[in-house]
Structure formats: structure tokens, C-alpha cells
Write a protein that binds this DNA or RNA. Structure first.
Lengths: 154, 154
DNA sequence: GTATTTTATATCGTTCACGATGCAAATATA
DNA sequence: TATATTTGCATCGTGAACGATATAAAATAC
């Protein structure tokens, strides 16, 4: 009843802290271009495939639309992307990169390597990264399933 | 210039997602007691050692005081803890648990095991957890150093 | 074809995170 | 002991996250 409450034994606290610190490592690289880290994630999704509905972006990032919608609106205000109603399905909002949004990929070309280099350490190297990725992917998949199963129609 | 931008190759996105999903797993367990996850972290710190100044709590959680102060004020309003000026150093605010705050430890006694069980999966087991902890601790330490080194007095 | 349900987004309120800045108490320096 | 600097905490503004709820369009049922 004591040991389990120690901060050192918490996986969540480690993930939470590591996530925050890496995001902070992105900060100087992104803010230079007027971007935040979640906005950068949206760009990663759109660079892979342009012109997607809000829902596809949200699903890819495993976020809710109530998080993504305001994010996209801010990016639209910055001229990074545009949002237009879907032609087939008028409920959808199709999000497309503007010229400015596409050009950012070149301007941010050294961001991944810079941040990647900053996290290399004794136990996290090109050799061990796949194992780490696997464990995190596994945790994510497990939790995702649990959450989806949760709404038990009583 | 393409591969490095893929979401699947990003450590940060995995950490960010895993962190968010575990926090969501805590939600039903904590909200029942009127707590959020960051508030739970504050409790973990205070259960280990009561009556700490704001700065010690912030350092332990690797957060800034501008994040912790409002958090503590909300918890004070909930009657979970109290804040009083330090006697030796009048700049300090000493944060102490109330009876209610101490009692929460018993009421939350099965939270760690419940969440811990929810993340157990193929590649994350009691055997592999120490390795995962080590890698995350290493990343955290490395990033923490980088951030502390950053303010280069030019 | 109208009613019901589902789906795609959006709005709202609260709570973090965090950069920037302010202020007062303590400490160091002159 | 005056002055400068550092330290501890707080305030402010902005941008996420996210639970709850709303709204309109599409799909389904009747």
C-alpha cells in the first residue's frame, strides 16, 4: 500500500514527463515558424496525404474532433491550410494544405534529425529504438482497445 | 526527406499518445474522487513527504511553478491541502495535506494496480517493465540536461 | 416518404502546460 | 548598510486536451 504509490514506480508519470520534455525540445525549432507541436503533427498527417476530412486527421492522431477543430481553425487563420465543406458528404470538412503549408516541409526538413539526435542516450540508440517503439505501440493498442470497450451498453 | 516525417517513425508522437491514453485510463478512477491526473501526481508527492514548498513539488514533477500554483490552489479550494507561508523563508509557500488529502490514499488504494493491469500487454510485462523504465528515465535525463544547458549565456 | 438513428463537426466549460513577466523576500556584493 | 542579484512564487495570455452537449446532414427504419 506504499510502494505502488511511489512516483518512481509509475509508468504514466514517465510517459507524461518524457512526452512533455520532447515537446519542449521541439519548441525552439517549431516556434521559429509559428508552429506548435500538435500543429506539427497535423502537418505530418497532411504531408503524407493531403485533403483529408477532420475525422481522418483526428483518428490518425487519436484525438477527438473537439481538440482538432480549434487546432485546424488556428492553422487556417495562419494560412497554413484551408477547410472546405465536402462535396459528396456535406457534413465533412475537407482540410487541405495551402502553398505555405506545403512549403513548410522544406523549411522544417532538419527538425526530425535534430530532435532525434537530442534523445539519443545510453539506453536509447538506433539499435534499441525498435524495441521501445514496439512496447509503446503495444501499450497504445491495449489502452485504445480498453477505452473502446469501455462504453458497456448496460 | 520523406521517411523521417512519417508519423510511424516519431518517438514523440508515441510518447504523447501513450501518455494521453494512460491518463484517460486514470480518469474514471480519479474523477470519482474529484481528482485529475496532475492532482493525483501532487498527492503522490505529498504522500511520500508532507509539508513541502511549492518549488520542491514542482521540481519533483518537473513542472514549472506557473503550472503547479494554480493546480495547488484548486486542490486547496477542494479542501485536499492547505498552503501557508514559510516561517523561515517568507517567500516559500508550504503545502500540507489536510485530513481529507491524507484519507484519499486509502480511498485510492487500488488505483495503481488497476491502471497497471490495464497496460500489461504482450511486450510490456513485469519482466520488461524495468527495461522500459530505464529507457524512459534515460530519455528524460538527457532531455532535462539539454534544456538546462540551453540558456547559453551568449 | 416520413421518422429514427447514426455520423461528422462544432461549441462550451474546465483544467492543464508553459513562455513571458512581475514582485517581494532573501542573499550576495560593494 | 545600501545596492544589486538571485530566488520563490504568482499573474497573465495562449493553446491544447477532453468531457459533455448541440446541430445539421446522411443513412436507416418503418
Amino acid at each position: 500500500m506504499k510502494e505502488q504509490f511511489k512516483l518512481e514506480n509509475q509508468l504514466c508519470f514517465r510517459l507524461y514527463t518524457a512526452s512533455r520534455l520532447i515537446t519542449q525540445a521541439y519548441y525552439p525549432l517549431l516556434s521559429e515558424h509559428g508552429l506548435t507541436y500538435p500543429q506539427y503533427l497535423v502537418l505530418l498527417v497532411l504531408w503524407e496525404k493531403d485533403a483529408q476530412p477532420v475525422n481522418d486527421i483526428a483518428k490518425r492522431l487519436m484525438l477527438e474532433t473537439n481538440t482538432v477543430t480549434p487546432l485546424l481553425k488556428r492553422m487556417e487563420a495562419e494560412g497554413i491550410l484551408s477547410r472546405r465543406k465536402g462535396k459528396e458528404d456535406a457534413r465533412q470538412m475537407i482540410v487541405s494544405l495551402t502553398r505555405k503549408g506545403r512549403d513548410l516541409q522544406d523549411r522544417l526538413s532538419d527538425v526530425p534529425a535534430t530532435v532525434g539526435g537530442a534523445v539519443i542516450c545510453h539506453s536509447v540508440t538506433p539499435e534499441t529504438v525498435p524495441g521501445l517503439f514496439g512496447m509503446l505501440d503495444d501499450v497504445i493498442a491495449t489502452l485504445k482497445d480498453n477505452i473502446n470497450d469501455k462504453p458497456v451498453k448496460e
